[in-house]
Nucleic acid binder design. Structure first.
Length: 599
RNA sequence: GGUCCGGUAGCUCAGCUGGAUAGAGCGACAGCCUUCUAAGCUGUAGGUCAUUGGUUCGAAUCCAAUCCGGAUCACCA
């Protein structure tokens, strides 16, 4: 049980004993961390009970406080200020906490549940390379997966590759027309970038044709439909659906290039998946669901043969599920894929990491599945996140206005390398070690930058301003960790201290305020992890780790460890920083960020 | 127009299951390295928590309305 839960329990019991007339269900105890300017650790708000009991707040507070301190060794003293009962936690609690957990690698993690949660993220199109906006999706999905694992869930990390459709045909057409057989090998270009270049090329050609048609007197709408290159792309899509051998061959080749490129990027970022779905294999799945729905009377057919669902009773519109010619639309595939995922893994929860522009789509998807009576419906959860935009607006691959993911990673690593060299603290490092460190710092900064903000908030990223390595950053946390490791090296502390050291630390009775602040924060880790898991929000963990590093830095500046005032204090502090380093490592690992021992 | 999301310091963001004088980082200014890593620490300046009204002993937090910004509402994906 967490400290605050324990306090809540003890206070509730005490109030119930003293004042049975108080209805604690109607007005539950409210416990907060005591504000820094007052003495104490946790505060009970008394106002809700003052009225019903018709007592003065200070009398009530003193009565409760006296009983608590007399009966429970958890509390060492109390004070009442206005309507607030400030409780001081006995040092022994924190000494025990440290003793129990300082080297527990599983501190805060929860026992394995017997469930399966799928987290689908990344899910790229195969017509262009990954950009900065995709990174937010990828890091979010990966972090949420790790957080769910740490809280005992069986997690399946899934990637649904959008490998078919008009967009890939556009790249294919442009390649056929202009590439002269260029391949990643022949050009020395990373496969995903090569294909992306032809996607941009397609749009250039398309625009030129549009301009010509419009100059010839055609209106814009017609021109968009009549442009020859667009017709070619649509013809190619038909050929693909018919399984035309030549088209399939080119499609496979170009997708293969893209996958090679993606895998390089995923590897670089430390991202992996347990299950890959390909839209080319799933895009026909939803049709049967739609046919069944029609039989059940949940759906209806219009004169032209198209099939719809009426969601107006739910405040939404009529939604098309199957075209008049019997072909699928976007949501048809998603219906089928949702069912497939559910049946593949017996999922208790299916999380979709998808940008908030698709909120409506996801809402409709879930509603339709529910109306069809599909058991997967209640398992679906849309983890919606805000898009990353440039100061000039949205990133658009076809316009070429994107910050490329590979470039961004390379830039951050380069920046980290320069600054590391400038610091001049890595003298004994080999070239290899230096590069590893730069990757840890550069990639860590990037991940943290994208994860530290509440997912639902939109972000604006200015490529002209490089991501900082000071302040609220991964670097700050990495640095605190390196400092701890430096002390531990110097003091030659093994991870498990000797019995003598343990006893020495136990003998310490008085805890300095800075030590206590650190311990109080360490105590919160399991609660924060649990919250981050419930909310699917890694930013809470980012904030927590940053605050912990901040508290450590304050402690470090004020209190010496190797020159502590006594042996007891020294061993106590060594244990304290061992635990701090452990929690920092575990917390940051959830975000895929490693902490160096030296930097 | 309907629905959804956001609006907190110059900038980027915490805080939002109601609690004490609204917190960090960046930027600005002033200090701190013969003592464990200064990628750090300490301090100063900087706020009508978009606006108005309501609920309450108490509102950045809950409710309503308004204003601003964004997303979305295709036989596109």
């Amino acid at each position: 049980m967490s400290l605050s839960a324990e306090i809540k329990h003890l206070v509730s019991t005490t109030i119930a004993e003293l004042y049975p007339e108080v209805d604690l269900n109607a007005t539950p105890i409210s416990i907060n961390l005591t504000k820094a300017e007052f003495e104490g650790d946790y505060t009970v708000v008394l106002f809700p009970y003052v009225k019903t009991l018709r007592m003065k707040p200070d009398v009530l507070g003193n009565t409760i406080g006296e009983k608590l301190v007399a009966q429970h060794s958890l509390f060492s003293k109390f004070s009442v200020v206005a309507g607030f009962l400030n409780l001081t936690i006995a040092d022994k609690y924190f000494i025990d906490l440290l003793q129990r957990n300082f080297n527990d690698k599983c501190y805060g993690t929860q026992a394995l549940k017997n469930n399966k949660v799928m987290v689908e993220y990344s899910s790229p199109n195969t017509n262009k390379p990954l950009h900065f906006g995709h990174l937010r999706n990828i890091f979010l999905g990966a972090a949420v997966s790790e957080i769910l694992k740490a809280t005992g869930n069986g997690v399946v990390k899934a990637n649904l590759i959008n490998d078919r459709g008009i967009h890939i045909c556009k790249s294919m057409i442009a390649w056929k027309k202009t590439a002269n057989g260029a391949t990643p090998e022949s050009t020395g270009t990373k496969g995903d970038h090569l294909v992306g270049d032809y996607y941009v090329k397609f749009n250039e050609l398309y625009k030129a044709e549009l301009a010509q048609l419009i100059a010839g007197g055609m209106d814009e709408k017609t021109a968009e439909k009549e442009a020859p290159i667009m017709k070619e792309a649509q013809d190619m899509l038909r050929l693909w659906e018919a399984g035309d051998p030549e088209t399939m061959q080119l499609w496979k080749a170009m997708n293969g290039w893209v996958y090679e490129g993606f895998n390089v990027t995923y590897d670089k970022m430390g991202i992996s998946f347990d299950k890959w779905y390909y839209e080319s294999e799933t895009y026909l799945l939803g049709k049967k669901l739609v046919e069944d729905g029609l039989k059940k009377g949940v759906l209806f057919k219009k004169e032209n043969g198209s099939i719809w669902i009426d969601l107006s009773a739910d405040g939404l519109d009529e939604k098309l599920l199957l075209r008049g010619d019997g072909t699928s639309v976007y949501i048809t595939q998603d219906l089928g894929t949702a069912k497939l995922k559910y049946e593949d893994f017996c999922l208790s929860k299916s999380i979709y990491v998808i940008a908030d522009e698709q909120n409506y789509h996801m809402q409709v998807l879930q509603l339709i599945l529910a109306k069809l009576g599909e058991p997967c419906a209640p398992t679906i959860h849309h983890l919606s996140y805000g898009m990353v935009e440039l100061p000039t607006g949205r990133m658009k691959s076809r316009e070429g206005t994107v910050v490329d993911a590979d470039d961004m990673i390379a830039e951050m690593v380069q920046l980290a390398l320069e600054q590391t060299k400038q610091q001049g603290k890595t003298d004994g490092f080999t070239e290899e070690e230096l590069n590893q460190l730069a990757e840890m710092i550069g990639l860590g900064a990037l991940k943290f930058y994208l994860l530290r903000v509440d997912p639902k908030k939109k972000m604006i990223f200015d490529p002209k301003e490089s991501i900082d390595l000071h302040g609220f950053t991964a670097t700050f946390i990495q640095y605190a960790h390196a400092r701890i490791c430096s002390i531990l090296r110097k003091e030659q502390v093994e991870l498990l201290p000797s019995a003598a050291q343990l006893n020495a630390a136990k003998a310490k009775t008085d805890i300095h305020k800075l030590e206590k602040d650190l311990l109080k924060h360490l105590e919160l880790y399991p609660t924060v992890l649990n919250n981050a898991s419930n909310e699917l929000n890694p930013s809470e963990m980012c904030n927590y780790c940053f605050q912990l590093a901040q508290l450590f830095n304050g402690f470090y500046a004020e209190l010496s460890i190797s020159k502590a005032e006594s042996e007891e204090a020294k061993h106590f502090r060594l244990m304290l920083i061992v635990m701090t380093a452990l929690v920092l490592r575990n917390g940051m690992k959830l975000m895929g960020i490693a902490l160096p021992e030296k930097m």
